[in-house]
């Protein structure tokens, strides 16, 4: 009686080149104006070096090996911290979400701990762990743990009880119940937590590296500041922006990959 209508057409595809280029328009104009101002001497290089000078500095630091070294150590700290903090956050969110006993035992303590701004722990962690790798990684882990915890916990707690009842009527095992119903239902919320954690990850790391480190992008910026090396300071800021954007893109592509069922919808009627 009913033939499939092409449902995909309800979502307007953006593939006009002009639409793709539009987001880049403002950054390009800003960089051009910046370069022109520097060249014409309106903008003193002691206030802000020109984009070309920053780029040249970047090339030099890459050739000398300093930038790749610091970038990779920062990336290592960021990922290690995120993996540890994310796993702990996920496991805590999972057990507290699934078991009332664990929730009663842990949740209020975790919430209390969460209210401490994790960057306030920097002095304490330096006293405990010094300025070696474990200090930076611990800070990132603590910072990223909470968003993952909160969102995993809420994601699991807010699974539609009707779906759980449906699973029960199918006599699903606990294992099946989790993997077929609870986890997929909570996944969108968990991914929100991970995306948020990625933001926390970079800010934490930059602050930690700026305050106490002998390597990393944050250290590079701080060191350059001591030598009034304006180009490198600006270069580091640009690198932060690029890293932040890249992690956001990674998170987004994860979401569209894992939540493809959400994106196939006809308009929410």
């Amino acid at each position: 009686m009913q033939k499939p209508v092409t449902l995909t057409t309800t979502r307007k595809k953006i593939n006009l080149p002009i639409d793709k280029l539009l987001p880049f328009l403002i950054p390009i104009i800003v960089i051009l104006l910046w370069q022109v101002s520097s060249t014409l001497g309106w903008l003193s290089s002691s206030v802000l070096p020109s984009p070309i000078a920053v780029l040249q500095d970047g090339i030099e630091l890459t050739q000398s090996g300093e930038l790749p070294k610091n970038l990779s150590i920062s990336l290592y700290r960021a990922t290690a911290g995120l993996i540890i903090g994310g796993s702990v956050g996920f496991i805590l969110g999972f057990v507290n979400g699934m078991s009332n006993t664990f929730r009663l035992l842990f949740d209020s303590s975790i919430q209390m701990f969460r209210n401490i701004p994790h960057l306030a722990l920097i002095p304490l962690i330096i006293l405990w762990l010094g300025i070696n790798e474990s200090a930076k990684i611990s800070l990132v882990a603590i910072g990223t743990m909470f968003p993952v915890y909160i969102n995993t916990f809420h994601g699991i707690r807010s699974v539609d009880p009707d779906l759980i009842e449906m699973g029960e009527s199918y006599e699903l095992s606990k294992h099946q119940m989790f993997f077929k119903i609870i986890f997929p239902a909570a996944l969108p919320q968990i991914l929100v937590g991970i995306r948020y954690a990625l933001g926390v990850m970079w800010t934490t790391l930059i602050v930690a590296e700026t305050i106490s480190a002998s390597s990393g992008i944050g250290y590079m910026a701080n060191n350059a500041e001591d030598f009034v090396d304006m180009e490198t300071v600006v270069l580091c800021i640009v690198i932060y922006a690029v890293l932040g954007k890249i992690s956001d893109l990674v998170a987004k592509s994860f979401e569209s990959l894992l939540l493809d069922w959400q994106n196939t919808g006809r308009s929410n009627a």
């Binding site: 009707d162 009842e165 119903i181 997929p184 239902a185 939540l259 069922w261």
Partner: peptide, 22 residues
Amino acid sequence: QVMFQEDRLLPWMSVLDNLSFG
């Protein structure tokens, strides 16, 4: 078998998988 006013379909599974998962 019971059927409710809400369809209780799993949104992350295709129609076919919704029928066969149990």
